[in-house]
């Protein structure tokens, strides 16, 4: 399989999931698309460097996580306030399910950056061993983090739900 075919297949397989991760991280569709594009440009540029030591998904998700972390350092505060406005506007127009999804995005946005990334991988049902490899920490450390983040996210969500 040549480089173009490999890339196309990787994009088809992982593109949607990565976009969801980016969307969860930014809460903004346009920014998520930019990050998706940057992620896959990095994938294209480094495709020859993939040595098969990790799974394709681990490798690609790592690139996506790094792209999100580095590109959105400065936008986190802005994101929360923008999201607030959008959420209030949409609250009355959307179905219950859509509102819950938006509320979840908002709750995730209030976590620390590293916690956002970890919890989205958990929500995607990625195995803990793979998340640990993506993030580059031990599985034991990851479990401790996940326990704390789950609690924190649930509390934030409940707080918003009550409002």
């Amino acid at each position: 399989m040549n480089k173009q075919d490999t890339f196309t297949q990787l994009y088809r397989q992982y593109g949607p999931g990565i976009r969801k991760l980016c969307l969860g991280y930014t809460g903004d569709a346009a920014k998520a698309d930019d990050l998706l594009q940057d992620t896959f440009m990095a994938v294209w540029n480094h495709l020859e460097n993939f040595r098969g030591e990790a799974k394709w998904s681990t490798w690609i998700y790592r690139i996506a996580v790094n792209t999100c972390l580095v590109n959105l350092r400065k936008q986190k505060m802005q994101f929360v306030s923008d999201q607030d406005t959008v959420l209030h506007q949409l609250a009355e127009e959307r179905s219950d399910t859509e509102q819950q999804v938006q509320l979840l995005y908002k709750s995730i946005s209030q976590l620390r950056e590293s916690d956002r990334v970890i919890i989205m991988l958990v929500l995607e049902d990625k195995p803990y061993a793979e998340i640990a490899e993506i993030i580059g920490i031990t599985e034991a450390n990851l479990r401790v983090k996940i326990h704390r983040i789950k609690k924190e996210l649930t509390e934030i969500y409940q707080r918003h739900e009550r409002l």
């Binding site: 088809r12 949607p16 896959f40 399910t97 819950q100 649930t154």
Partner: peptide, 29 residues
């Protein structure tokens, strides 16, 4: 809204399939 409920909410949203971003310039810093 225990965590499993949040996971259900998350997984209800199906990711969109978008065209491959091959030609546009990268926008990252």
């Amino acid at each position: 809204s225990d965590f499993d409920s949040l996971k259900n909410i998350w997984q209800q949203e199906k990711p969109e399939a978008k065209p491959i971003p091959i030609s546009a310039q990268a926008k990252s810093e």
